[in-house]
Simulated scan of single mutants.
Amino acid sequence: MRDAAPTRRTVLRGALAAAVLTAPLTAGCTRHGGPDDGRAPDGSPAPDGSPTPDGRHTAGTGSVLAVKIDNAAAARPQTGLDAADVVYAEQVEGGLSRLMAVYATRLPEVVGPVRSARESDLELLRQFDRPTLAFSGAQRKLLPLIDRAPLRPKTPDTASGAFYRGGDKAAPHNLYLRPARLMSGAPGEAALTTGFRYGRAPAGGTVTATRTVRYPAARFTFTWSAGRKRWLVSMDGAPTPTAAGRRLEPATVVVQHVRVRTSAYHDVLGNYTPYTETVGTGRAEVLRDGRSFEATWTRRAAADGTTFTGADGAPVDFATGQVWVVFAAR
Rank of each mutant, 00 (worst) to 15 (best):
D3H: 10
R8G: 14
R8T: 14
T10H: 09
R13E: 14
L16F: 12
A17S: 14
A18R: 07
V20T: 15
L21M: 11
T22L: 15
T26F: 00
H32N: 03
G34C: 02
P35I: 06
G43N: 07
P45T: 01
A46N: 01
P53Q: 01
A59V: 09
V67G: 05
I69S: 02
D70T: 13
L81M: 12
L81Q: 08
A84Y: 04
A89P: 05
R98A: 11
M100S: 07
M100V: 15
T105N: 11
R106W: 05
R106G: 02
V110G: 01
V110N: 02
V111I: 15
V114Q: 01
E123I: 14
L124C: 06
R130Y: 02
P131A: 01
T132A: 08
G137T: 09
P144V: 03
L145S: 11
I146E: 03
R152D: 07
K154M: 03
K154E: 09
T155H: 00
P156G: 04
R165I: 03
R165G: 00
P172W: 08
Y176S: 01
L177D: 04
L177R: 06
M183N: 03
S184C: 06
A186K: 03
P187R: 08
E189Q: 14
E189G: 01
R197Y: 00
T208Y: 05
A217V: 10
R219Q: 15
T221L: 01
W231V: 05
G237A: 07
P239K: 11
P241S: 05
R247W: 09
A251H: 04
T252K: 05
T252Y: 03
H257C: 04
V268D: 11
Y272H: 12
P274V: 09
T276A: 14
E277M: 11
T281M: 02
A284I: 13
L287F: 14
F293I: 09
W297H: 12
R299H: 12
A301T: 08
A303V: 15
A311E: 10
T320W: 00
G321R: 07
G321V: 08
V323A: 03
W324D: 03
A328G: 02
R330P: 07
